[in-house]
Nucleic acid binder design. Structure first.
Lengths: 207, 207
DNA sequence: ACCTGAACACCGTTCAAGT
DNA sequence: ACCTGAACACCGTTCAAGT
């Protein structure tokens, strides 16, 4: 078959299959992906002209749409919105830990992702944060979220194998799913940051 | 020449050249690296048996030795040591932003890096942090540092091109080297975390 | 022990040919 | 517009051969 009457592929289908492959294997291989879709490798390029890079950026878009906050609820304070923004952002990436390293290796260009950052910036602006404060806030929140998503992925067996050490002992002492520890310390960090931001905003406020 | 009387290569030499190549080009290619060293690609494997992966892990080791704190100074409080640990850790990676994505893609196994985490854990333990608190502290600090190192790498032109937006406006309003913003918000976040940790330790202390 | 060159099994991307 | 198969220029890794 050369050109089917109804397309065998769609952009969305490719992104979904790619995400699944990354979740399952930790890597993205185009030949493997095409095979899984029952198609030749070069066929992918008809739906995703930018190739591998565009596929990864497309996945970022899918995840952003699914998990990142964009609109403040009525009556929501900046602190509530920011918390919701950060928690949603992190949860989405923590659910697909293997994609995070791929995403961090390339620049954010997807509109859905950028829109979500913009929404956070606007909420902070309306709450009275100055330009500089707002920039710091977005930056530091982004850092914590990304770092936490990477951490959620990190295996802790390395420590178990090290035998006697404070860290190994602490890990053994608090038996739980690694993901729980990662999430709990993220939430702890998030509240600390929110408090820190609130305090700083107060200190340089004009009105 | 088949086997020179004095070796053409050394492990250290390879790691250094690899780091330089990543700094300059953003990627690590073994054929390119070997060519730069004036040697065949397969020669690398005599000094670094684990190949590409071991080279990257070796770079992590070099950077850890150079920049991560391991021993508390006399009279240093846990907060002072933790601050120094985090700042050194981040500065080292921020100085080589291109290596960070490569490092986050693979598990930490280098002893020098693990030793540094262990040193932090011990300081916190001695300061009266419980196992659970200590684990949270190390995790959240690690997250912030890694996330900040990634952020330091992110170009902000993306925003400039977006025209009118709160974030773009804020970036234009605070003209400065991007690295400065990144470092400043890291320091802000760090102090917030330290305060948060101090507060939490107090709340669950026994003695 | 250390270097070489060839060989192996892969990559991602492009493109002419076909409907 | 959409799929194919061949072609291109790469990868990282292994290994026998050589000193």
């Amino acid at each position: 078959m050369v050109r089917p009457t109804t397309p065998l592929l769609s952009r969305d289908q490719i992104l979904r299959a790619a995400l699944q492959q990354i979740d399952e294997t930790g890597t993205l291989g185009l030949p493997r992906l095409a095979k899984h879709l029952g198609v030749g490798t070069s066929s992918l390029y008809h739906h995703v002209k930018g190739g591998r890079e565009e596929i990864i950026e497309g996945i970022r878009g899918v995840l952003s749409v699914e998990g990142m906050a964009t609109d403040p609820h009525p009556g929501e304070t900046w602190r509530e919105f920011t918390r919701r923004w950060a928690i949603g952002y992190r949860a989405t990436y923590a659910a697909h830990p293997n994609v995070v390293p791929l995403l961090t290796a390339q620049t954010v260009t997807h509109p859905a992702t950028l829109d979500s950052y913009e929404a956070l910036a606007e909420v902070l602006h309306d709450a009275g944060f100055s330009d500089a404060e707002l920039l710091d806030a977005v930056t530091v929140l982004d850092s914590l979220v990304l770092g936490s998503a990477l951490d959620a992925d990190a295996p802790e067996e390395v420590w178990a194998e090290r035998g006697d050490s404070s860290l190994a002992r602490a890990i053994r002492a608090t038996r739980e799913r690694p993901g729980d520890r990662s999430e709990r310390s993220f939430l702890l960090g998030l509240e600390s940051l929110l408090t820190g931001l609130e305090h700083r905003r107060g200190s340089s406020r004009v009105e």
